[in-house]
Structures are given as C-alpha cells and as structure tokens.
Amino acid sequence: MLLGVIVNACAIIFASLIGVRIRRIPERIKLLVMQALSLSVIVMGINMALSSEQFIIVMASLLIGAVIGECMDIDKRLNQVGMWIEARLGKAAQGSFSQGFVSATLIFATGALAILGPLDSGLRGDHQLLFTKSLIDGFSALVFASTLGIGVLFSAIPVFLYQGFIAVFASQIHAWVPPALMETLIAELTSVGGVFIVAIGLNLLHVTKVKVANLLPSLVIVVVIVSAIYGVQVLF
C-alpha cells in the first residue's frame, strides 16, 4: 500500500543529495536555472488553478483560510521547524534551509498527483501515478537542492506522512465519500493548490513575499464548503 509513497520520498531524498553535491555551479547559471524553474512552477500552478469548476469556492476558501492561517501563523511555525533542524545540522545546512524546506514541502505535497497518487495506491494497489510523481519530484528536488540547499531533502518527511495518511485511509474513503463528491473535491483542492504554487513561484523570483503556509487552512475550508454544497444538492 505504501510502496509508491516510499518511492516518492526516496526520490526526493536521493535527488536532493545529488543536488547538494553539485552546488559548485557559477552563480549566473544557478540564477538562470532558478528563474527558469520558478517560471515553470508558476505555469504549472496556473494550469492547476484553472481546474476549478466553481472558482468562487476557491476564492472563499483562500480568504477564510488566510484569516485562520494568519491567526495561527503557520508560516512562522514551519520556518521555526526549519531553523531548528538547520541549527542541528550546523555547517551541513548550506543555503536557505527554511525556504527550501517550506517551498519544497508545499510544492511536492500539493496538486492532483499528491492526492490521486496515494488514493490509487490505497484503493487499487496501483502505484503508477506515484511513480510518475517521483520522477517529476526527483528532478525538481535536484534543481531546488542545488540552489536552496539541503532543506529540500527534509521536505520528504512531511510529504511521506501526508501521502501515507491518504494511502492508509483510502480504503475507507470510498465507503463514505460518493464518487461525484470526490471528483469535485479533487478539482477544487487542485485549484487551491495551484494558487499556492503560483505564489511559491513568485516568492522564488523575489517578486513578492507571500506567506504561503498561512494559506494551508484553505484546503480544509474547501472540503467543508464543497461537502456542504453537495449535501444541500442531495437534500433538495
């Protein structure tokens, strides 16, 4: 059940190790590579954001989630975790550890494949989607680690826990979540995740500084709103 999840986490770890090893790249090349990756991330995020069937749900979720996330200051807490690990790694934590950890975690754990992959693994024992995601994440981790440092490697831990949770409980999901509701949930969750990724891309380009982690409660709000709308439609 967890084979695909394990492969995905290992791909991030091994690719990050390689990326850290090839840090001796001229700054001008690293800058251009990072800009190219950031632009690619933005395009990917826009493509995901457009998957929404009712964008008003996405907007409402982001607004409510932003208020909750800012009150909880999730971004600060995640960065504190990153700095705590960085302090214990000492000189090994080269580069922007917290930025690498937080950005990579949000990119690798957000999107359709991060939901559909473990769902397929848990429900049908089919790991093809997660194997495909592993290739994509591995390449991205290599590039990110070469510029942002070893913090990218540690993103494998929350990615493993998040996808592992979905895979383990996937066998129960189909028992209480109708296919129509699941389809809508995936579309709206993917769209919200796309907005996250666009913000991350803009942050990496230093265009702005969005506290993306503070938007994470939006994912829960999406589930609540979509489920409420579905319940009303079924009743009436």
Rank of each mutant, 00 (worst) to 15 (best):
A87T: 05
F160H: 00
Y162L: 14
L116E: 00
S98G: 01
S96K: 15
T132P: 07
P179I: 01
S191G: 07
M182L: 13
Q128C: 03
I157M: 11
I157A: 15
L153N: 03
L106W: 07
V143Q: 04
A104K: 00
V168S: 06
Q99C: 13
L181E: 02
V198N: 06
G100C: 02
A156W: 13
L189K: 10
L135Y: 09
A112Y: 02
I186M: 10
L153W: 12
V195G: 01
S103L: 03
H174I: 02
I173Y: 12
S98R: 10
S98I: 02
L202T: 11
V168D: 08
G122R: 03
G201F: 10
D120G: 09
W176H: 05
A170M: 01
T132N: 13
F154A: 00
A104I: 00
F108N: 05
S96G: 05
Q99A: 15
W84K: 12
K91Q: 14
V152R: 02
P178M: 04
E86V: 05
Q172W: 11
L185D: 02
S146P: 07
A109W: 09
Y162K: 05
E183A: 15
L202E: 02
L189E: 07
F131Y: 15
I157V: 14
R88T: 14
A93V: 01
G194D: 09
S134D: 00
I150W: 03
I166R: 07
Q172S: 06
T184M: 14
F169L: 14
T190R: 14
F154P: 12
S140R: 08
A92L: 13
Q94F: 13
F144V: 05
L106A: 06
L135T: 10
A114S: 15
Y162G: 06
L161G: 03
L153R: 11
Q99P: 00
A109N: 11
A156Y: 04
I157S: 03
I85H: 01
E183T: 15
T184R: 15
I197A: 12
